[in-house]
Amino acid sequence: MNTPTIAKPSPLNNPARTPITLTIAGSDSGGGAGIQADIKAISATGGYACSVITALTAQNTLGVSGIFPVSPAFVEQQLDAVFSDLEIRAVKIGMLSDAGIIQVVAKKLRQYQPEFIVLDPVMVATSGDLLLEEDAISTLKNELIPLANLITPNLPEAVTLTGSAGRHIDPSVLKCLDQEMLIEQLRAISNNAVLLKGGHWEHDAFSTDYLITESDTVTISAERVVTRNTHGTGCTLSAAIASYLAQGFSLADAVNQGKTYLTEALCHADLLSIGQGHGPVHHFYALHSLRDQG
């Protein structure tokens, strides 16, 4: 498979040209998802990462044992700190734990107006249970989705955003979805673009995502990688896309490059031996390959 293009670093005497991407998300103490995965993906794809933490989690490769939300006031303080000093071109948004935090993030994005916003709507647990209350989902749809250049829902999240499910999403429902209808429903809720991730169509030999714009739907496929190390795939993809947007790639190219990067990170994931459960993808596979060549 092709290695994604990585932008050349900016000259040291011109730091304003450094492609900076902000990740707004929760912290994963196990290091495989959330803020930690975002920072790794942004760094590995040639960007500089800064962060605003919305929640602390106690988790590892076996699961999440606790969540400690950060107050909306301190989220706001973090946002002011990074935006007032750093030239942030792209923002990736992940886990937002409640309506108050969503409102603060939306308010600050309207104030500072970064060029690109990629929203990964972390809304559904692996069990199928919703992670956000109804008021938070409504706030997300009304306040943040209109600001995003791209939203990147997986199938359960897409079903939730379009109002096709209740508090629990049965995996059997996902297998019989009307794909075309879902795409049209997603097109109707977003002013800009949607990347519908097809990873939950596990019976397919290929992992196919759908880039949905106002006038077109483009399929982006890669051969499905069989590995247990899939923790943080959604975070990694959306962060990589935001990183490529910050570097000047078009939306379509950024999505393609992000998909290629994630696929390679999955292909190399079994080179890592992390934890007893679902380990992370290999964010720095390119450095690993260079080390082996040396």
Rank of each mutant, 00 (worst) to 15 (best):
L130M: 08
I274H: 10
R167Y: 01
D120W: 06
I189D: 03
L109F: 10
S27M: 07
T23C: 14
L174R: 02
V255T: 07
V118I: 15
T126F: 07
R187P: 01
S29L: 02
A33E: 09
F206P: 00
K40T: 03
H283W: 10
L56A: 11
F116I: 00
L140N: 08
A269R: 10
S65E: 14
A81T: 13
P171N: 12
Y285F: 15
F206N: 15
A269K: 03
H282L: 08
R228Q: 13
E134A: 14
L177S: 01
L182I: 03
D216H: 13
D170N: 15
V82A: 02
L12T: 13
A222S: 12
I20V: 15
E180K: 15
I24L: 09
V105G: 05
L237R: 04
S215Q: 14
R110D: 11
H282D: 01
V122E: 05
L211Y: 02
G198V: 04
P280H: 06
A148Y: 10
S29G: 02
E184K: 13
F284K: 08
D292A: 12
R110I: 07
P171M: 11
L96N: 01
G199T: 01
G232P: 01
V75M: 07
N256A: 14
G46L: 11
D120R: 06
Y210W: 15
T227D: 04
N229L: 02
I241E: 09
P280W: 11
C267W: 03
I53C: 04
C267G: 07
S84D: 14
R89A: 11
A254K: 06
I39Y: 07
V122K: 06
L211T: 00
V159G: 00
T61A: 12
G248Q: 07
I24H: 07
T45D: 06
Q59W: 01
F74Q: 14
H231C: 03
T219S: 12
T5H: 14
N60R: 09
G30W: 01
I189H: 07
L150R: 12
R224Q: 11
I6Y: 09
T5K: 13
A58G: 11
A252H: 10
Q257C: 06
A246P: 00
N142M: 06
N229T: 02
C267I: 12
I183H: 14
E264Y: 03
I151T: 08
H283S: 02
D204E: 15
S207D: 10
T162W: 09
I24F: 06
V118M: 09
K141I: 04
L195G: 10
A222D: 09
S250N: 03
V124C: 04
I102R: 00
H203Y: 08
F74D: 01
L132D: 09
S238T: 06
T126Q: 12
P11G: 13
G66W: 11
R167I: 05
I39M: 15
R17F: 00
S190Y: 05
I117Q: 07
T236M: 02
I101Y: 12
S289K: 15
A44G: 09
L177F: 06
T160K: 13
L22M: 11
K92M: 04
A188S: 15
T233S: 06
G275T: 08
K107A: 13
P171W: 14
Q257S: 15
H200T: 01
A90P: 05
P146S: 10
T23N: 08
T152P: 00
N154Q: 04
A55F: 02
A44M: 11
Q113E: 13
N154V: 00
R187C: 02
L22W: 10
T23R: 01
L109D: 03
